[in-house]
C-alpha cells in the first residue's frame, strides 16, 4: 500500500487532516482554528473533497509545526464523538495493538 500521502484523494465520508508533530513525531490533527491538536476530538471534520483540499493546503503553509500532512478517514458516532476511520489511524491514535516491552511504555501517553 502506498502511504496515504501518495494516494489519490478520495472523500466519501467524514475526513480530517492529520500529520506528525515536527519536534517529536507525535500524531496531530488539524483544527478548525488553523492549529494542530494531539486530540482527535479537536479535529476539523469535513465531508467533501474541496473542503479536504482546503484544509490540507492550510495545513501545509507553515512547515515547522507538523510533517507529512494527509487526509485521513474518520467516523463520527451518534453522540458526535470522532473516531479514527481505519486500522492504521486507530493505531496512530492508540499506539501499537500489543503491550510494549518497556516498563516505561505504560507510563507515557499513547501519542
Amino acid at each position: 500500500m502506498a502511504a496515504p500521502q501518495q494516494q489519490k484523494l478520495k472523500v466519501n465520508g467524514p475526513v480530517a487532516v492529520t500529520a506528525n508533530r515536527l519536534s517529536d513525531g507525535v500524531v496531530v490533527w488539524r483544527t478548525a482554528a488553523g492549529g494542530w491538536s494531539t486530540d482527535l476530538a479537536d479535529a476539523a471534520v469535513v465531508t467533501t473533497a474541496p473542503e479536504a483540499i482546503a484544509l490540507l493546503e492550510s495545513a501545509s503553509v507553515r512547515h515547522t509545526d507538523a510533517v507529512g500532512a494527509y487526509v485521513a478517514p474518520v467516523v463520527v458516532v451518534e453522540d458526535g464523538t470522532v473516531r479514527p476511520g481505519n486500522l492504521r489511524e486507530r493505531i496512530r491514535v492508540a499506539g501499537p495493538t500489543f503491550t510494549l516491552p518497556g516498563a516505561l511504555g505504560a507510563d507515557l501517553p499513547a501519542a
Binding site: 506528525n20 513525531g25 512547515h63 515547522t64 507529512g68 496512530r92 501519542a111
Partner: peptide
C-alpha cells in the same frame, strides 16, 4: 535549522535518512 524553519522537510528528509532517522506512524 529544521526546527527553526531554515530547512523544510524536503530538504531535511534526505539528511535525516542518511543518519538512520525515519518517521514512522507515531514517532521518529
Amino acid at each position: 535549522r529544521r526546527l527553526a524553519g531554515a530547512l523544510n522537510e524536503d530538504e531535511f528528509k534526505p539528511l535525516r535518512l542518511m543518519n538512520g532517522v525515519y518517521l514512522q506512524l507515531h514517532a521518529y
